[in-house]
């Protein structure tokens, strides 16, 4: 059984369909990429999975259990963690306190008498931003804030980690280190689903890739398969001529 199953999800905003019968699965312990052009509905999918957006129709299943109507915080307790494309770090707190807060929330009352300093240090070190521990989260570079969100999500020990454009704002060597970290997380048995625009990163670390276009999955497969897929190239680059576009629209309406 897949860990996550997004089943025929539709999200409409007024007359606009952001997610259009999206259907995909994420296997436990893998790194799965969710890619597609801007406005394809990737972040909306994430919001549906984490409970920030109620789908117009369709279901989300975690471990075979329907969680479509479950409130956000209870999904988190069931092991879903995420980062945000538009940053949601706690800007008034220091980087270390961001993680400390996540630990406080996760541990509840049982954590009161435990010093979390070692854990925080470990988590920040793990994502590679220990040097920023005492800076306010709204004054660090974007890349650092993204990694902070990852550290914060990890503090809750998630089984399924949703990362929304985690590498934007990172330079080349940082991206490489980040790729290694993702593989490490997967080897611990965590499942990663990520929206990412850096194709080099996606191709290098993902076990499987789903391509979302106009709110629907237009292709699924291994990185090599996706790279060779003509539909995917078209989705990203557009269409060379009208006949091409007409063909494509026909295919999609089937």
């Amino acid at each position: 059984m897949p860990l996550l199953h997004v089943d025929d999800v539709v999200v409409q905003f007024g007359g606009v369909t952001a997610v259009n019968h999206a259907q995909f699965e994420v296997e436990e312990g893998t790194i799965t990429g969710l890619i597609g052009p801007n406005g394809a509905g990737k972040t909306t999918c994430f919001n549906v999975i984490t409970g920030l957006q109620t789908p117009t129709s369709g279901k989300v299943l975690l471990d075979g259990r329907d969680i479509t109507r479950m409130p956000v915080h209870r999904r988190s307790r069931r092991g879903i963690g995420r980062t945000f494309q538009r940053l949601e770090a706690f800007g008034s707190l220091t980087v270390a306190d961001n993680v400390r807060t996540a630990l406080d929330i996760h541990d509840g009352f049982s954590g009161i008498f435990r010093s979390a300093n070692a854990d925080i240090e470990h988590l920040l070190d793990r994502v590679g931003i220990a040097g920023y521990a005492q800076e306010r989260a709204d004054s660090v570079p974007t890349g650092v804030a993204r990694l902070l969100e990852l550290a914060r999500a990890l503090a809750c020990d998630p089984r399924l980690l949703l990362l929304d454009e985690p590498s934007s704002g990172l330079d080349e060597s940082e991206t490489e280190a980040f790729g290694d970290l993702l593989k490490e997380l997967a080897s611990e048995g965590r499942t990663v689903l990520m929206v990412e625009h850096d194709m080099d990163l996606v191709m290098a670390v993902c076990d499987a890739i789903h391509v979302l276009d106009f709110g629907s999955i237009i292709a699924q497969g291994t990185p090599a398969e996706i790279r060779a897929n003509k539909l995917v190239q078209k989705a990203y680059l557009g269409y060379a001529d009208e006949a091409d576009a007409a063909d494509e629209t026909k295919v999609m309406s089937l």
Partner: peptide, 13 residues
């Protein structure tokens, strides 16, 4: 700016 975002190919055309 990004005229085509989220639109079907024929419409973009």
């Amino acid at each position: 700016d990004e005229l085509s975002m989220g639109l079907a190919p024929l419409i973009v055309d």
